[in-house]
Design a protein around this nucleic acid. Sequence first.
DNA 1: TTGCGACTTCAAGCTACCTTTAAGTCAAAG
DNA 2: CTTTGACTTAAAGGTAGCTTGAAGTCGCAA
Lengths: 129, 129
Amino acid sequence: MADFLTISEVARVFGIRTSAIRYYEQIGILPAPLRKSGQRRYTENVLFRLAVIQRARETGFTLYEIRKLFFGFAAGTSPPKRWRELSEQKLAELQLRMERLKTMETLLKKMRNCHCHALDECGKKLLAL
Amino acid sequence: MADFLTISEVARVFGIRTSAIRYYEQIGILPAPLRKSGQRRYTENVLFRLAVIQRARETGFTLYEIRKLFFGFAAGTSPPKRWRELSEQKLAELQLRMERLKTMETLLKKMRNCHCHALDECGKKLLAL
DNA sequence: TTGCGACTTCAAGCTACCTTTAAGTCAAAG
DNA sequence: CTTTGACTTAAAGGTAGCTTGAAGTCGCAA
């Protein structure tokens, strides 16, 4: 029956628009699927891809970073090696982002407990991190 | 001497463009400074503001969220109260972001250690989170 | 055969966050 | 007085990540 999925079925699963899916294909982060009289027919593989894409997007990666990651896997230089390099790099970026989030958390906590009546007064305190 | 700062001095301190500073003023996240024959002259207060803005931006807040945060401080309802509410809310958002980052970290670590030769094969594994 | 609904493409539109450009003002130096 | 350099404005331009619109195709049902 549902051996293949139409674009709108896929879209519904992920709560995104069909136009977004076509766009992802266009910029090369989703492979072009088989066609049945012009219409895209997806296998479950697209679900795995989209799941990774969504998580990456949620954590702040751009579509172009994601593309780089995917191409890094596919490309020539013995896949697992290049792949490892790229994911190491992305992991380092994640570390940085997490540190920044923590700094911001500290900042917000200070702001929350601040009793200043003017923002600038408060800002002055904050800079004493 | 440097009792006041020109827009380009401020820009240099933060490594941003003068146009960005004017834009921040335009959308209301930087207060309009005094003018000396038309030109903006800043006090050190602007540095505190910009520091907070930069950190917030780094952690993914939009300029409009930042504006809301600032206005929340300034606005009517006994400042510290409204302020506290808003920062609580932002803190909750931060928590969520951190969780997502951690999920992504797990994902990337799995990918790094993956020996699949095809992305889809790898994706399948990943979905067993 | 006609109509319907779900798809297709291509191009233009939209929001956020700025940057760039054009044209002008100001003040201090030569 | 003219030039220089740093500023001013308003408006247009640019990029990311889509969305929307117009016009057309496909296959099935009445």
